[in-house]
Design a protein around this nucleic acid. Structure first.
Length: 284
DNA sequence: CACCATGTTCCTTG
DNA sequence: CCAAGGAACATGGT
C-alpha cells in the first residue's frame, strides 16, 4: 500500500480519528517494527501522551505527540504491506498486528504482514529525505542538478528518496511514461527540458492518484471483501467497486497495448525491481 | 515447487 | 566517493 499518494490519503483519513486523542495503552506485538526503539521506551514515551497532529513526509507518517510540556514525534512507515486504521470497539485483532494503541474512542492498529514497516521514535531516516514533490520545495533547477550528478538510470534514480521524497516503484514508471522518457536513460543525460517534463509528470501522477484515492470510498481496515488501501485503477477494478478507470498506464501491464499508441508495454528489470514502459513513447 | 510483490538497508565487488 | 548487484528482512498470492 505504500507510495506517497496512498500514505497521503491514509493520513487525511486517519488524522481526524487520532487527533487530540490520548494514548492510554501501547501494545507491541511485533517488536522488530519499532526498531531501534525498545518496547519499554516506546510505552513510556507514548502512554499518557496526546496525539496533537498527524502529518506526512514522503512515505512517512508523523505522529506528533505531547505529554505535558514534552513534545515528541513518532515515525510510521508502511513498508510493503503495512496498514493503519482505528478499530471500532469489540473487534478482534487482525492477524499480523504489529502495534496497537488504546485511544479514548477506539483502538489504533498498525498491521503489517511482512513487517518491513516501522513505528518508531528513531527519526534519522527523515534527515536524508529529498523535497516534497507537491510542495514549492520541489524545485525544477535543483531537480535537474541532482539528476545530472547521477550515473544511474533515471528510473533507478527516481527511487532514491533523497532526490525527491515519496516516489516508489509504481509511480516512477508512471511518471516516466507520462514524460515520454526511457527508464534506461542515464539520469545525467536528461536535458533540462526532459527534466522539467519529468518534474511536472511526477507531480501530475501523484496528484491524480491522491485525487482518485480521496474520491473513492476505501476500506481502510480491510474488513470483509475489500482490499483496503492500495493502488488505484488496476487491481482495484475488481469485486465491489469499479469505474475509477485506468489510472495506471504502464505498471503491471506487460504485453498490453499502450493507451497512447497501442505498442505493447514492456517489462524490464532494473536494480532488481520491475520497470514498465512503452518502447515507442519512451525511446532511448 | 518456483517466482513474484507497493520498501529500505546493508554488504560485496568493481 | 560512486554504481551495480545481491541478499536480507517475512509472508502471501499466483
Amino acid at each position: 500500500m505504500p507510495e506517497l499518494p496512498e500514505v497521503e490519503v491514509l493520513c487525511q483519513h486517519l488524522a481526524p480519528l487520532v487527533r487530540d486523542r490520548t494514548i492510554a495503552g501501547v501494545r507491541v506485538v511485533r517488536e522488530r517494527v519499532i526498531r531501534p526503539t525498545g518496547k519499554t521506551t516506546l510505552s513510556r514515551a507514548l502512554r499518557g501522551a496526546m496525539i496533537t497532529d498527524l502529518t506526512r513526509r514522503g512515505k512517512f507518517l508523523l505522529f506528533h505527540l505531547r505529554k505535558g510540556d514534552h513534545a515528541a514525534v513518532l515515525l510510521g512507515h508502511l513498508g510493503m504491506t503495512g496498514r493503519m486504521f482505528v478499530q471500532p470497539p469489540g473487534q478482534p485483532l487482525p492477524t499480523h498486528t504489529a502495534v496497537t494503541l488504546d485511544l479514548d474512542g477506539g483502538r489504533f492498529v498498525y498491521q503489517d504482514t511482512r513487517g518491513f514497516g516501522r513505528f518508531t521514535l528513531e527519526l534519522a531516516s527523515l534527515d536524508t529525505l529529498g523535497p516534497e514533490p507537491l510542495s514549492d520545495d520541489f524545485d525544477p533547477a535543483a531537480f535537474h542538478r541532482s539528476l545530472r550528478a547521477s550515473r544511474q538510470a533515471v528510473k533507478v534514480k527516481l527511487l532514491d528518496q533523497s532526490l525527491v521524497a515519496g516516489v516508489g516503484n509504481i509511480y516512477a514508471s508512471e511518471a516516466l511514461h507520462r514524460a515520454g522518457i526511457s527508464p534506461r536513460k542515464a539520469a545525467r543525460r536528461l536535458t533540462r527540458l526532459e527534466s522539467d517534463r519529468l518534474h511536472t509528470a511526477i507531480r501530475t501522477v501523484l496528484d491524480e492518484a491522491i485525487r482518485q484515492g480521496s474520491t473513492i470510498p476505501l476500506d481502510f481496515a480491510g474488513s470483509g471483501s475489500g482490499d483496503g488501501l492500495f493502488y488505484y485503477g488496476r487491481r482495484a477494478d475488481r469485486g465491489g467497486m469499479e469505474s475509477h478507470g485506468e489510472r495506471l498506464l504502464v505498471y503491471d501491464r506487460d504485453g498490453e497495448p499502450c493507451a497512447a499508441c497501442g505498442t505493447p508495454i514492456r517489462k524490464i528489470v532494473q536494480a532488481a525491481r520491475s520497470t514498465f514502459y512503452c518502447p515507442a513513447c519512451q525511446r532511448a
